[in-house]
């Protein structure tokens, strides 16, 4: 099976615009937060244009609310499509969650009950979105803190079945698997083995925090060792998958994040065959 492999990327953050434009760092791609660029003009779009000229980008959204029982937000979708036409991303993604109901927005990625009616509801909405955008989208697994009594299956069965029925792709967040495995007592390897490899297009890596007995997905710490271990297992199982680190709080200087991404590259270097790596890494490995 061949999937497009972009190599190793980072989330594009405003703090790093200048550094990236001045130094053109040797990373393979950037992920942009769609909503930050769904604006009339000014700095965000100007920087995006400059950086897009030098790097592939993918778009990652938080407001699709694919699991909501509200109708799909047509204004949001139109704005998303306009941005996609402008940014020409390799692909675009959002989360397997709901964010709003009765037109009230939680601005959070809220979990869903894992059952048949929810699968049918969401698969239909993803198909609608894909028809509108004229392309497949990626759906990402969450970190979650609650389990609904109405759930009838594991999260990975739920995700995989939705992806199959909607014929969409999957963004697998390795940190979110780790966090949810801790919070809901499942084996993260079961998750990795339960997802159809041919649908997995991208990995997210991130840090999390502890809050009492729970782990919270805060994106304000470096990736921790057990998540690196899980990432290695994921690479072994899925093969080369485009990988990036998300950092949204306590954002360090760009070189520090770049150094963290080098850990992912090292893991890939010893896990994947040299011909699977981006040329700049394959040469080093040979």
């Amino acid at each position: 099976m061949t999937r497009p492999f972009l190599g190793f990327g980072l989330g594009l953050r405003t703090d790093h615009y200048q550094y990236i434009e001045d130094h053109r760092p040797d990373i393979d791609w950037f992920e942009i937060l769609s909503e930050n660029y769904m604006v009339p003009g000014g700095k965000p779009l100007a920087h995006l244009e400059r950086i897009r000229a030098d790097y592939p980008v993918v778009m990652h959204g938080v407001s699709l609310s694919i699991g909501s029982t509200d109708p799909l937000d047509e204004d949001y979708l139109a704005s998303l499509k306009t941005l996609a036409e402008r940014a020409q991303p390799e692909w675009l993604s959002d989360h397997l969650c709901w964010t709003q109901v009765d037109h009230t927005n939680s601005h959070d990625l809220l979990p869903l009950p894992y059952n048949e009616p929810t699968i049918e509801h969401i698969a239909g909405r993803i198909r609608q979105v894909q028809d509108y955008l004229g392309r497949q989208i990626l759906i990402e697994n969450l970190s979650s803190y609650v389990t609904y009594r109405a759930s009838e299956m594991s999260e990975w069965e739920f995700l995989d079945e939705i992806a199959r029925r909607a014929d969409c792709l999957i963004l697998l967040d390795i940190n979110n698997i780790f966090v949810s495995a801790h919070n809901h007592h499942f084996d993260p390897m079961d998750y990795l083995l339960g997802v159809s490899p041919e649908r997995v297009m991208q990995f997210h890596l991130a840090g999390h925090s502890h809050s009492g007995p729970m782990l919270i997905d805060t994106h304000d710490h470096p990736v921790c060792d057990p998540v690196w271990t899980l990432y290695e297992a994921a690479l072994k199982h899925f093969g080369p998958v485009s990988t990036m680190i998300e950092r949204d709080d306590d954002i360090p200087e760009f070189p520090a994040l770049r150094a963290e991404l080098a850990i992912a590259e090292d893991i890939a270097g010893r896990t994947l065959a040299a011909e699977c790596l981006p040329p700049r890494l394959a040469q080093g490995a040979a």
Partner: peptide, 13 residues
């Protein structure tokens, strides 16, 4: 979807 909707409304509440 009535059940899911009621659950989402209760969660938002």
């Amino acid at each position: 979807m009535e059940q899911l909707r009621a659950m989402q409304q209760a969660f938002m509440g």
